[in-house]
């Protein structure tokens, strides 16, 4: 063990790691993260609408709010049973897609 540099010199980051491939990978993942917010937000709203449609009585706490949530409630309540199943399938598909995107 001869000719080793001093400890401080040995420990220094004196090498620049090439980073183009790494940067491209991060940017691609960041774009997916950006989309994920919309996907999850959309899924959450859809799920809320479905839940309000199935069990509208459980959402009476919103009645006191002067928000147009009753419109959402009305929309959800007007969806037929087959429509609800379709909505659930869509929500599952969207969430599954989001997870798949994240794992890539």
């Amino acid at each position: 063990m001869t000719d080793l540099p001093p400890l401080d010199k040995l420990l220094a980051y004196d090498r620049h790691l090439e980073g183009e491939a790494f940067t491209r990978k991060v940017m691609a993942q960041a774009a997916r993260r950006g989309h994920r917010g919309w996907i999850l937000g959309g899924s959450a709203l859809l799920s809320l609408a479905v839940a309000m449609g199935i069990k509208p009585d459980n959402f009476t706490m919103f009645a006191d709010l002067r928000l147009p949530l009753h419109l959402l409630d009305n929309v959800a309540a007007s969806v037929s049973a087959s429509g609800l199943v379709a909505a659930l399938l869509i929500a599952a598909l969207v969430v599954g897609t989001g997870k798949t995107i994240d794992s890539m």
Binding site: Y13, R15, H16, L17, G19, E20, F22, T23, V26, M27
Partner: peptide, 12 residues
Amino acid sequence: LVRRYQSPIRQF
């Protein structure tokens, strides 16, 4: 920013 900091963060 990623290009600027990737090397020290990866080495760390």
